[in-house]
């Protein structure tokens, strides 16, 4: 099954929860894959330290005009919803970084004067670490279109029983692309007014996608009772809680908070796994 770990707010502990869940699967002898879809700021492998066995370049298609064939009719400019093609004195000028690779210009050109060429946008690094299959996207610096790379990362390690998708923060296209098609979404939040605000936004996005979700409270004891009451009154089901602790922070600073979490809070991580299992479309494990 596919479990997306998302948050709305950044820095709530998505990667920590994703890693802990993967480590928990590995200990329970469930084959797990960890997919780092936060391609603008990938960090999973700083912690997992998987040995990279392969690096694959991911391309998108952009138009290229065969100038002698072009009659300057402007059909390509008219169909482009992103202003990526502009006709200047009868010649199409292409802005590759505005292009969303829809292929519209290629299809409408009556002269067949447009061909689609590949443009690299980033890489996917794959490997294995601690018994967990890993794939992580890394968007090229200056590149704006992350969804095609996120989609490519999500195609990795289809053989794994549980695929954990570490999503980017926010509620815009990259976060939606990472969460889409998941069987279950884990929203990691921290009990602060800021955390609650962004969780509410993220939950709105998940509901719009029609996906089931549960909330994991990280640093669950930092916000006081009032804010927890507000979580409940907004109808968020809290499926697990990890308290704020110096031991976890120290582990994190060494690049290994997962072993601390597994040692001290394994039951909470197991709760996330078993809650998500209810939504496993492939049926319960035997």
């Amino acid at each position: 099954m596919n479990i997306a770990i998302a948050s709305g707010k950044g820095g709530t502990g998505k990667t920590t929860i994703a890693m802990s869940l993967a480590a928990c699967c590995a200990r329970n002898e469930i084959s797990a894959a960890l997919l780092d879809c936060d391609v603008e700021e990938p960090n999973v492998n700083l912690f997992l330290k998987a040995e990279i066995e392969s690096t694959e370049t991911v391309n998108v298609l952009i138009p290229k005009v065969d100038e002698p064939r072009c009659t300057g009719c402007g059909e390509c400019e008219r169909i482009c919803a992103f202003n990526a093609i502009v006709l200047v004195k009868g010649k199409p000028l292409i802005f590759a970084d505005m292009c969303h690779s829809c292929g519209g210009c290629y299809h409408v050109c009556p002269e067949r004067a447009i061909e689609e060429i590949e443009k690299p946008i980033g890489v996917i690094e794959s490997g294995t670490g601690g018994g967990i299959a890993f794939a992580g996207g890394r968007l090229s610096i200056g590149e704006a279109m992350s969804p095609p790379l996120i989609r490519a990362v999500k195609r990795c390690h289809p053989e794994a029983e549980t695929r954990i998708i570490d999503s980017p923060p926010g509620t815009s296209c990259p976060a939606v692309e990472a969460m889409r098609d998941a069987d279950f979404v884990v929203l990691v939040s921290e009990p602060t007014p800021f955390g609650l605000n962004d969780l509410t936004l993220a939950a709105g996005a998940v509901r719009a996608l029609g996906l089931p979700f549960g909330v994991v409270l990280n640093r669950s004891d930092i916000g006081g009772k009032l804010i927890l009451k507000e979580y409940r009154s907004r109808g968020f089901e809290i499926i697990a809680s990890i308290p704020h602790s110096r031991a976890i922070a120290e582990g994190y600073s060494r690049g290994d908070c997962v072993s601390v979490i597994i040692e001290r809070h394994r039951a909470e991580i197991e709760k996330i796994a078993s809650y998500a299992e209810r939504y496993n479309k492939k049926g319960a494990r035997t």
Partner: peptide
């Protein structure tokens, strides 16, 4: 008010 490509389109207007 364009989401993106304002510079390109304004340039086209001027051209």
């Amino acid at each position: 008010e364009a989401a993106q490509g304002a510079g390109i389109q304004s340039a086209k207007t001027v051209i």
